[in-house]
Amino acid sequence: MTNATPPKGSERNIRSLSSTHIDGAPMAYIIALAAVVTALSFIPFSFILGSGGSFPLSQGVLGLVGWVLGPVAGAVSSGIGSLLGVFLAPHTAGPLPLMRVVGSVYASFAAGAMVLGQKRRYWWIPVAVYAMLSFAYFVGRAILLNGVGVGIAFAATFVDWSAIVLFILPTRKLITGWLRSSKLPQVMLGLALGTWMIYGITHVCQSAVIYHLQNYPEEVWATLIPIIPFENLVRAAVGVVIGSGVITGLRAVGLIKPEHAVF
């Protein structure tokens, strides 16, 4: 590259004549991450019976997809990626494949809705309202209709209500700030809590529907008390490992950031 002399030609006014974006994210990015989600659907992770069947490794990146692409493009990418994943890798799709897809859309949207600035600063509210309604239906149905003990119901939904609390309180903004930090330990902390939170609220939304169908009895609730937090801890750990690698990598490569990226 030569710098010495100014160019001889006259400078031209450049207009962007391209229109291949969705909500500020290039189509190709959306496709690439959707394909990642699909490919990772092939890898089963472990069994969680409470929310239905095994979960695939793709769940470890749904939050990240939202943080990288923003809420709308992230939701599109995750949704289409898991939709294909459900067809191609039925062995990890769980008992309610479509629920898996809806959950992915919700998770990435919720992650992308974590914003700091003035723009879109109310987007988190519908996400939170939906999570709270789901929680009310889920736990309410268990206690009032199916006679699950109040203590057990709340113990078994620790992941759910802790995530809702984190999401509603200013902790959401704190976590977002950490994700943007240039210090790796802060990014990792943000990823850990952010992943816990995003999957927690996703879990409650899915559980409300699944519980409506399955009505598992109190004894199952009891067994879930240790399992669900453990599973979510694993997800958070996966979120930290993948997220910190990808975010530092993207900063190193200098890829053009989508308009509504959170990281």
Binding site: Y29, I242, V246, G249
Partner: peptide, 18 residues
């Protein structure tokens, strides 16, 4: 989880080519 990192990064870099 470690494997996923290069996977996503190369997917995104290639997506610019795409």
């Amino acid at each position: 989880a470690r494997v996923v990192v290069p996977l996503i990064l190369s997917a995104l870099v290639r997506s610019q080519q795409l």
